[in-house]
């Protein structure tokens, strides 16, 4: 292990370029540690986002040596064995400055995919009883831990080709709600996620599944949405 890392960091907006920093190499150092060192010790004007530092909040995702990753849980030893790091903002989102992207489009698509829960009961009704081993509950569980970091969105080729595509995270969210039997907007949701800007645009490249730091498979959820939409279309409910 050498004593220093050579770190190329994106500076400026879309028209910016890389700036190189030398950062001391430490044991058990994360990529977020490296960025924080640069901002605190070398250049306080560096813009980046983080909050929890423990893989819960989904704020700190960046492009690390060409791949989208959550930086707080990514060890330097894992991604920069040769001592070189290249840090850029997430792909497929407008760059605000340096490592910060504007994630509005990403979250607007969650809303477009009907990612909101639509309750069917009031507080006066008894609790819904959902069996933990029911197929729907198991499907919802598989996708529910999404932290909205945008790694899947930045890794998706279809998002790159078709800017109107809803993307893996929004579709994964929709799939968890399709499996929520308490939800009352099922037909509207399937209408929102079906079609050529929705689940049917997915090419099953599996980049989202490969890169998701929470080991969720949005691809599986998207396949589930395709099946659900097909059944609804054949029934005439879509």
């Amino acid at each position: 292990m050498s004593d220093f890392l050579t770190v190329r960091v994106w500076r400026g907006d879309e028209q910016g370029g890389f700036q190189t920093f030398e950062v001391p190499r430490l044991e058990s150092q994360t990529v977020l540690d490296v960025v924080s060192h640069i901002q605190r010790q070398l250049d306080p004007t560096l813009a980046y986002r983080f909050a929890c530092r423990v893989g819960m909040c989904g704020s700190c995702a960046m492009t690390v040596n060409g791949k989208a990753r959550w930086t707080c849980r990514t060890h330097v030893a894992k991604v920069a064995a040769d001592g070189n790091l290249e840090l850029a903002p997430l792909a497929h989102l407008p760059v605000v400055r340096d490592l910060v992207t504007d994630m509005s489009a990403f979250f607007d698509k969650w809303a477009r995919a009907r990612g909101q829960f639509h309750p069917t009961a009031t507080r006066k009704d008894p609790f819904a009883r959902i069996r933990p081993d029911s197929a729907q509950r198991i499907n919802a569980d598989a996708g529910i831990e999404c932290i909205g970091c945008g790694v899947c969105y930045a890794s998706c080729d279809v998002v790159q080709w078709r800017p109107d595509y809803l993307g893996p995270a929004a579709l994964n969210r929709a799939w968890t709600l399709v499996n929520d039997e308490r939800d009352g907007a099922q037909a509207e949701r399937l209408r929102a996620v079906a079609g050529d800007a929705g689940c049917h645009a997915c090419h099953t490249h599996l980049s989202c599944t490969e890169r998701c730091p929470k080991h969720i498979s949005p691809t599986a959820g998207i396949a589930g949405l395709k099946r659900a939409a097909m059944k609804a279309a054949l029934r005439g409910d879509l």
Binding site: R191, A194, G195, D196, H200, K226, A229, M230, A232, A233, L234, G236, L238
Partner: peptide, 11 residues
Amino acid sequence: NTRTEVRLWAA
């Protein structure tokens, strides 16, 4: 419309 799109996909 979406229904036709999905039916085409199924076909």
